[in-house]
């Protein structure tokens, strides 16, 4: 098996024990937004296996550089400079090429550039908070940013989000769509966060924690964090259902 050509088999069933449950009362917003009936399962059709392709031609030069993509010419965002990089793999361990990654985050002070955001930490005039890239042939991605600050949020009276970067991933199929968050190694807020704790499994939470990667740090510039992400794998197409009667 190689990475040439798209996969066309059905995706492996999602492990819904590994993902957070829809209803986790400690994350209060989930109470009124969680479906109460069981989802109905069916095996993938072309509607789930296919998905749009995103070419590298959609990318601007600074799309994967959050330090500069919103900054005035000659200026840069405030904060601890970091590089985030890793590979997007499927459940078979193969790199997934052509994955669209979009990321968003608060600035170094923990403030988002958004109309609905009211935290008193100031905006950084040179930081927008969005970026994107597409994985190469081996599934590798890299972007540069500043380390986001922790911020308080209305849930309990004193709930704080650990520093995190939101990731949206678009692999080859619509059923592979995933949104998740990346956390930073050794952050003491991780075990206290009700959103992290919607995942009831320590090994699964560990998959969301990026590790400091000193080998790939850029001397006198930016530390590196390594963050690999796994998307759903696909069956080979050898024994798909054929027409009725075959």
């Amino acid at each position: 098996m190689d990475n040439e050509g798209p996969e066309t088999g059905a995706f492996f069933a999602r492990d819904r024990q590994w993902h957070p449950k829809a209803l986790v009362p400690e994350y209060k917003t989930s109470i009124l937004r969680s479906p109460q009936k069981a989802p109905i399962s069916f095996s993938n059709t072309a509607s789930e296996i296919t998905g749009p392709a995103f070419g590298h031609d959609i990318l601007g030069e600074l799309d994967n550089d959050l330090i500069h993509n919103f900054a005035e010419p000659g200026k840069s965002a405030l904060g601890q400079r970091i590089v985030v990089h890793g590979r997007i793999l499927d459940e078979n361990g193969r790199g997934v090429p052509g994955v669209l990654l979009e990321f968003w985050q608060a600035n170094a002070g923990g403030r988002y550039r958004h109309k609905n955001e009211g935290y008193l930490a100031p905006l950084d005039p040179n930081f927008g908070g969005c970026g994107r890239t597409i994985t190469d042939k081996t599934g590798y991605y890299v972007f540069r940013t500043v380390k986001p600050g922790a911020y308080p949020w209305p849930n309990g009276v004193n709930d704080w989000r650990p520093s995190h970067i939101h990731f949206s991933l678009f692999g080859s199929g619509f059923a592979q769509r995933l949104i998740t968050q990346m956390y930073f190694e050794n952050d003491p807020l991780i075990p206290l966060c009700p959103i992290v704790q919607t995942i009831n499994n320590a090994a699964a939470i560990k998959q969301l924690v990026a590790q400091l990667d000193m080998a790939n740090t850029i001397p006198m510039d930016a530390r590196a964090y390594k963050f690999d992400i796994v998307l759903r794998g696909q069956r080979s197409t050898m024994f798909e259902n054929k027409r009725q009667g075959n």
């Binding site: 590994w18 459940e91 949104i179 959103i195 759903r232």
Partner: peptide, 22 residues
């Protein structure tokens, strides 16, 4: 089985527009 686990999902949160529809 020599198989990885899919990275767990997390909520898109209230500011998903920043990343997906800036």
């Amino acid at each position: 089985l020599d198989q990885l686990k899919e990275t767990p999902s997390q909520t898109a949160g209230p500011y998903v527009h920043i990343g997906c529809t800036p």
